[in-house]
């Protein structure tokens, strides 16, 4: 017991000392990328600047909800990562703050146009194109032809071999739906979804689940973001990544400063740092195969080469708005998901 009390007293003294020694610089980071990437970003920023980072990782939907709930008493400073739609929505609702970073001229055009479409309240930090991946072994054992276009997936021999997420629950699948509408036009796009529906073996809940199932040999073709498919291939699964010939849509992972941030200077420091080459190169360490927004940042050799992918001019403003989203989802629910398979 005596030992315990001395130990306790000792640690209290140490605590008190550390309190007086530590500076007041701190930053509350809301992170919506994968866990290890978030951790790495937080720790590296601490190392680079000495500012303490208190990081919370949640999905972009959850984070958006949290920022909205805390609007009158913001607790977070910066929101880093996650797909662009909720960032745009937050900008629309004035939950995030206008900021023009001095790092801007180093960025790709798509990152800047993301900022401009939101009145500079957000900015692109990485992007990833939509596509699909297939399990080469399963394809061979079922004697299936190698698909290379979106329309290839409609072939009757792929019946029961294709998986995608449910657009109602997954942002990835909604991007797919919106991309098809933009590539083929609304009517033909929905005809495509109906044809695809016949070949789908399961609408998964989470966006990247189809390609994981393909990796394990539980599914042949998964419609996902290409960087997710690449991650499977790099992990050793027999996955081949396809950039569809008709062109494809993409997401822009974004970053925003929260309106009313308590540590505004630190938030700006993080914002600028996160756009730097050094910070964006960290993605390579955690097998994140998205394309970084800084032109000088290096892209993994395994990452899909964006210059070879035919990207459509994705209208983030229109298809990110909640009215259009609701309309498309409802149409999909009524016209597509109810059809027999």
């Amino acid at each position: 017991m005596k030992k315990l009390t001395t130990a306790l007293a000792g640690s209290l003294v140490a605590l008190a000392a550390s309190v007086s020694a530590s500076s007041a610089d701190k930053l509350t980071l809301y992170c919506s990328a994968q866990e290890d990437w978030c951790q790495l970003m937080a720790r590296s920023f601490e190392d680079a600047t000495g500012i303490d980072v208190n990081m919370t990782r949640k999905s972009s939907g959850e984070t958006f909800a949290q920022i909205r709930a805390e609007a009158s008493n913001p607790k977070g400073d910066v929101w880093w990562g996650g797909t662009g739609d909720p960032h745009l929505q937050a900008a629309e609702e004035g939950l995030t703050m206008e900021y023009v970073s001095p790092m801007r001229e180093q960025l790709h055009d798509w990152a800047i146009s993301q900022a401009e479409s939101a009145g500079n309240r957000t900015i692109g930090i990485y992007s990833g194109a939509l596509g699909y991946g297939y399990n080469t072994e399963l394809l061979a054992s079922n004697n299936l032809p190698e698909p290379s276009c979106w329309k290839d997936l409609l072939k009757p021999e792929f019946k029961g071999h294709v998986q995608m997420a449910n657009p109602n629950s997954s942002g990835t699948a909604y991007t797919t739906l919106a991309s098809m509408v933009q590539i083929f036009g609304e009517d033909e796009g929905f005809e495509f979804m109906k044809g695809l529906h016949k070949n789908i073996n399961q609408y998964t809940k989470s966006g990247s689940a189809p390609i994981k199932a393909a990796g394990r040999g539980e599914n042949t073709i998964g419609i996902v973001f290409m960087h997710d498919a690449v991650a499977q291939a790099v992990a050793g699964f027999p996955i081949k990544v396809v950039a569809p010939c008709e062109g494809t849509g993409y997401e822009i992972g974004s970053m925003s400063i929260i309106e009313g941030a308590r540590n505004l200077d630190e938030a700006k420091a993080f914002y600028d740092w996160a756009l730097s080459v050094d910070a964006q190169n960290l993605a390579l360490q955690v097998n994140a195969f998205q394309v970084p927004s800084n032109m000088g940042a290096s892209t993994s050799e395994s990452a899909p080469d964006m210059s070879l992918i035919k990207l459509i001019d994705y209208d983030f403003r229109k298809y990110g708005s909640s009215d259009e989203r609701k309309r498309l989802l409802q149409k999909w629910d009524e016209d597509v998901s109810t059809l027999p398979q």
Binding site: S59, P167, N168, S170, G171, Q202, K205, L329
Partner: peptide, 24 residues
């Protein structure tokens, strides 16, 4: 149900995705 459910939707997973999914 999350791992094995396939297209067999149950309430517990539906609740989860009603909240964290894209529909919020």
């Amino acid at each position: 149900p999350l791992v094995l459910g396939g297209n067999f939707d149950v309430l517990s997973t539906e609740i989860f995705f009603a909240i964290v999914g894209a529909q919020y």
